[in-house]
Design a protein around this nucleic acid. Structure first.
Lengths: 235, 235
DNA sequence: CCCAAAAACTGATGTATATCAGTTTTGATA
DNA sequence: TATCAAAACTGATATACATCAGTTTTTGGG
């Protein structure tokens, strides 16, 4: 069963995970010349919509939400980034301001690379530029899928899809047969699925009754991925 | 009043409009070596979701809708491309299949460039690659905005925003003080705003009564852009 | 210029999901 | 380990928008 192309799930070989692997030692040295590490606590803002970028971020550990805030202060989560993913390079490349904000969903480590070093290596290595184009094109597929999910799926389907995506994001570092605890607030889940938090809670109750998942306090553990995919109405 | 960043409107200097201008004469020759022209009639499909791309398209004249179809056959229009815009290069760059379909909304001329020539010039010219990265990054801003529009705005707001975007797309080739007739079916408009066609019709009636627009048969002409922007709830 | 088919339009009704107003549970902190 | 504020949860009600079942208008081919 291939979920790729249907659900906005990333595969290693397409994403920003592996973009840095095409660099030579010299190029890597150039890129990481002024690299700094940052430890972020849950809720810390990494960048904010409308501000000017000064560099790019590489997630080392933890999970980061990317979102836009509407007039009433409600967040729409656009993407969840995990370990190995590059963040915040779009506005550096286009010379625009951040189109969205990024906040740590849990304790998180990120590396910061000044935009000058990023652009320097990018203009020296056409292999790196092509690799970035590939990664961005794949991200496009993911975003395009997100649009059709938000516009065309029902509430329960969107929640099921959000849980499938989150399960992948929280898989990192766990052995294959280990349970994957999805550690997310009901509000964040609601802002990801485009639902009211109250309805997310009601639907999680239904999913639990159907044997799809179980909850341990705020943590969600998927018991039956097949049933969940069915709930997402995937054919 | 700057709509950019709020509404998914393209500006010439960011989009694929001008990407080809960075090429040298020799590079342009390489790119257009096997270029072919195609005349398309209203309703003709240019590429279809799930198929393998063999090249990229440059819109010469007309308007093209990019959309995804759900299980019930309903279209969600993701983007409308006009003259000067490059199309269908994402799956060429990522090595994936088309994530969406493209259909001519009116009589349209497109140029086709085989993927081999596109990739050849891309790997030879790092300036071109950087220019493509810039254009794609901007497209990202546009798509990100689309997501928040679809998820966070009300029906009337989404319709107003769709009309603002369409007005820009249909501006091409007209003098500044000329009226811009938006030639689009109510169904396409509904699929763009994520509404039922019946409600689009009702809302267009309201907008007409408010003096925002007038209709000539199927054509829509915006009378007061300021009122329309207000209806879109832009501060 | 006519004609049939498609698109535009209208009003009545249905429903998914938000909102509101609470109570209960959880987990961080002291 | 006791505390309490925040988060999770529950039920009642409201509403935006879709759906359905028509009628009228438009449009493009013959």
């Amino acid at each position: 069963m291939s979920l790729n192309g249907i659900f906005p799930i990333d595969r290693w070989n397409f994403t920003t995970h592996s973009v840095l692997s095409v660099l030579s030692e010299e190029e890597t040295a150039r890129l990481t010349r002024h690299l700094t590490e940052q430890h972020l606590f849950k809720g810390d803002v990494i960048f904010r919509e409308g501000t000017v970028p000064s560099g790019i971020f590489l997630v080392r550990s933890g999970r980061v939400k990317k979102y836009k805030v509407d007039q009433l202060g409600k967040e729409q989560i656009i993407y969840v980034a995990g370990p190995g993913e590059l963040m915040g390079y779009h506005p550096v490349l286009s010379g625009e301001r951040y189109a969205d904000s990024a906040t740590a969903m849990e304790d998180t480590m990120v590396s910061f690379i000044p935009k000058e070093d990023f652009m320097d290596v990018l203009s020296r290595s056409s292999v790196f530029a092509l690799r970035m184009l590939k990664a961005m094109s794949h991200e496009f597929t993911v975003l395009t899928n997100s649009i059709s999910v938000i516009a065309q799926r029902t509430g329960p389907e969107r929640l099921a899809i959000a849980l499938i995506v989150l399960r992948e994001k929280f898989k990192y570092g766990l052995s294959d047969n280990e349970a994957i605890p999805i550690n997310i607030s009901r509000t964040d889940l609601a802002n990801m699925a485009g639902l009211a938090a109250e309805n997310v809670i009601r639907l999680l109750g239904e999913f639990k009754a159907e044997g799809i998942l179980l909850t341990e306090g705020r943590k969600i553990i998927i018991r039956d991925v097949h049933l969940l995919v069915k709930r997402a109405n995937y054919r």
